[in-house]
Design a protein around this nucleic acid. Sequence first.
DNA 1: GAATTAATTAAACGTTCGTTTTATTAATTT
DNA 2: AAATTAATAAAACGAACGTTTAATTAATTC
Lengths: 214, 214
Amino acid sequence: MARTAGSDGGRTEAAIRDAAVQLIARHGYEAVTMRQLAAEVGVQAAALYRYFPNKEDLLHSLMREHMEELATTWENARPANDDPVARLTSFVANHIRFHVERRHATHVSNMELRSLSRDNLTSILKLRTAYEKELRTILRDGADAGLLEVDDTGLTAMAIIQMITGVIVWFRPDERLSVDEVTATYLAMTMRLTGAKTNAEDRHVRQDAELRAR
Amino acid sequence: MARTAGSDGGRTEAAIRDAAVQLIARHGYEAVTMRQLAAEVGVQAAALYRYFPNKEDLLHSLMREHMEELATTWENARPANDDPVARLTSFVANHIRFHVERRHATHVSNMELRSLSRDNLTSILKLRTAYEKELRTILRDGADAGLLEVDDTGLTAMAIIQMITGVIVWFRPDERLSVDEVTATYLAMTMRLTGAKTNAEDRHVRQDAELRAR
DNA sequence: GAATTAATTAAACGTTCGTTTTATTAATTT
DNA sequence: AAATTAATAAAACGAACGTTTAATTAATTC
């Protein structure tokens, strides 16, 4: 046999990407074989090489797609106003939603970096660094404006990212909590962690100052 | 050739464990071959099978050792007094120190769980869950005593653990910050995140209350 | 110092891996 | 309807994998 009836390159490639993300997330890149992936797609292994030159390029392509989607999603979610606390809120909420909705792809992008060769690794890390810089900028702006208490911008950014990305480790939809509830709790923790002056607290701080001024 | 001069079972096993942790942390369990590991130790691949029945049992043994050391270290570091804030401080400081000192073993224990078969996985998760429960207990005790502000004990425990374990992702000794400096910053973030009433803040809160009472 | 045990090498086993080559059929274009 | 291009199957490649078996030497015990 050869070309099958109804076969379509676009659909096949999408099916390969989909199956690859699932399989690699579950078993790890090295453990997944091209034959296993092909079987999942319902095709012979050789057919995969029409879409990706080799196994590593497939992995790299999945990661690149994930990171570029993340950047795009954040660009669209970023609020127009430049209040640092509002931007921090948007960042955390967007980050959690994006990653929860892409648990498998996130696992792949975070855990399989070591399987990339130099150049492929560099290109992914570049995208990741650019994204992380967004958070550092928010934190610095907030600290400069006196709206956040941040000892060390870099450390705090890493701490927050680890914390909110970690949601995917334990979160399962259809269980006790919804994404919105989890996001609310994590937002509250982020705000306390950064000593954010919310409107309410702000009023409180001002009240205290007024009391003392008397 | 056969037995080599000066060979010693104890030393060889230790060398295997050491090399395995380094190699698996860097390349991943599936990517490391028994021949590669043997070469690193300076021995033939067959010699490894005198110490571990197979590749997976080697991995499981490394993880078990790591988790048991973690439990032991915490037992020794746990403060005698039962002030929740003091216990939280000890937990975070001990956790960061332990993991920073064992970056590679931590990577193995956290990232290679999917390579374990059912029974081996269960035994490791049991140890991990027991350890995490320590933190949940501290948080609940603190919340019950009114010393911590914790919305959700489970979520907060996971958030803190992700945050402080994440140190190993970016921390490198001999760079800008020492372990103690990093620990101090993370402790400050943890205390804010949990709304901990330290002595200083406690006094501050009492002062505010007094001011208002006038 | 002979017998035994511990530690290791060397070689081989069958299996599976990523990838390539070649042939074949479906769909599209002319 | 013939020619061309796209999508796949089938088979084969050498290399590498985890593991086993058998032989060999060092260290220890008797």
